[in-house]
Nucleic acid binder design. Structure first.
Lengths: 247, 247
DNA sequence: ACAAAAGTGTTTTTTATACACCCATGC
DNA sequence: GCATGGGTGTATAAAAAACACTTTTGT
């Protein structure tokens, strides 16, 4: 998703360097397996610009702070969570992406390094300053967002779907033990209903050998009780860096 | 490849914002199909810090210039090329990654947005200021690089191998028409000898249906003349966004 | 007993892998 | 005519996809 435009700057053989503030914006995803919904965390902006509008949780990088530090800091301000997966997403830095930039006088620029995160929904606890300033939104029902955050969100959604197919991020976000149906629900919620048959999904994953049956059965309403499984990261290690597909 | 460390800043509840200069560094790859070598473009630094040392071609972003603009600008300063593939790679921005930063006084920070590029070797023409300031280096024989550029290079190399497997970047970098052996050589050079049998590689690619035989034969020394093929981007379009593997 | 959810197995189709072999040219 | 690289085909193994069926629970 490259940034286009601005290929030619009028009359600038030795334009002076731009000064930047660097922001970090997080696309934090979560899967509500109960209601089968993919959720994204949005905040209501408390400052100008875009005051009152929704945006991804973001912050500006402070002195002495790394990009990832800043990503963790803003995450921790909005949500309490034990388990999460976080990685860098993309950097958006074209001129004019932030209204605080003065278009004419070449003032300070605002660059955004975006991060992608996946958190465990059940244990995630939102931190409110005022009610409604932080909330989960289902991915199919996103309001208009501040800045270029819709683009970041779409980019993150794409990343989530890709990652799910070839890396074990699902286990970062499921409880310690889970049923194979929990796992399947997570996949269907993100990738859609017809990504795979349950029984094929099941046998493929078990054959890979990094899910171990705890022997414990759990009954959820009617039907036969399901086995609880655990992700065995030791057994997974040799599969790392292999061309691996889960679905 | 997340950046670690600096999780806790001593006594900083409201540290002031950091000011940044933003650099763009390009990992520009090329494949010399004649000599079967994967090459990376390096420059000899003309300024402090790391004066005289090799580095990826990089530049600082100027006023009014987008990140991608800057990437194209520095590329165009070092190399003349008609066809290329370019995409953003990763952003490195931890404190202390550039010696120009004053570690104690919290001066301006230097952030690097890296770009990955693949260019057509045969038509790429290096632009010298002084002889030897720009040169191709085989990937197995890289000197010590300035800044954290070794890390960027490794990250780019990984990206190249991944991209080659599931996206048609090879055709951006091959001549307009090419033999299937040219294509195969390119793949083996980047991915290693035993990634696939030639005849299987061949039939898989032809079955995908986006390579069309021009009918023209070309003879290279001894042996039966080979057909020249052309990449048909129209025929490829429907395969886009499909889980597609070339090798 | 029967619906509901879990789990197993079987059949068919497709794809991957490893080769053997034929073809057209230069020398 | 034979070495050299180009190109085709086949036999086997493995994986993907579709789906029928059994098991164990709650009601």
């Amino acid at each position: 998703m490259p940034e286009r435009g601005h290929r030619n700057i009028p009359g600038s053989l030795k334009q002076p360097l731009a000064d930047f503030k660097v922001g970090v914006d997080n696309a934090i995803f979560s899967v509500d397996t109960e209601r089968n919904r993919l959720l994204i965390l949005l905040v209501k902006r408390q400052d100008e610009p875009f005051l009152g509008q929704r945006s991804l949780p973001g912050t500006l990088v402070r002195q002495g702070e790394s990009l990832e530090d800043a990503a963790y800091r803003i995450l921790a301000e909005k949500i309490r969570v034990e388990n999460l997966y976080l990685e860098q997403l993309y950097t958006f830095g074209g001129p004019g992406r932030d209204p605080r930039e003065d278009a004419t006088s070449y003032g300070v620029r605002y660059l955004s390094v975006s991060y992608f995160a996946l958190v465990r929904f059940a244990e995630a606890e939102l931190i409110y300053q005022t009610t409604g300033d932080v909330a989960w939104y289902p991915i199919e029902d996103i309001p208009k967002l501040a800045f270029d955050h819709e683009r970041i969100l779409q980019y993150g959604y794409q990343r989530l779907r890709n990652k799910l197919e070839y890396s074990p991020i699902a286990f970062e976000v499921l409880p310690e033990v889970f049923t194979l149906n929990d796992l399947y629900q997570l996949y269907t919620t993100v990738l859609g209903e017809n990504f795979s048959d349950y029984s094929n999904f099941r046998s493929r994953l078990l054959k890979l050998g990094f899910l171990c049956d705890t022997g414990i059965k759990v009954s959820r309403g009617a039907g036969r009780p399901a086995s609880l499984y655990r992700f065995d990261s030791k057994a997974f290690a040799p599969l790392k860096d292999k061309p691996l597909v889960f679905i």
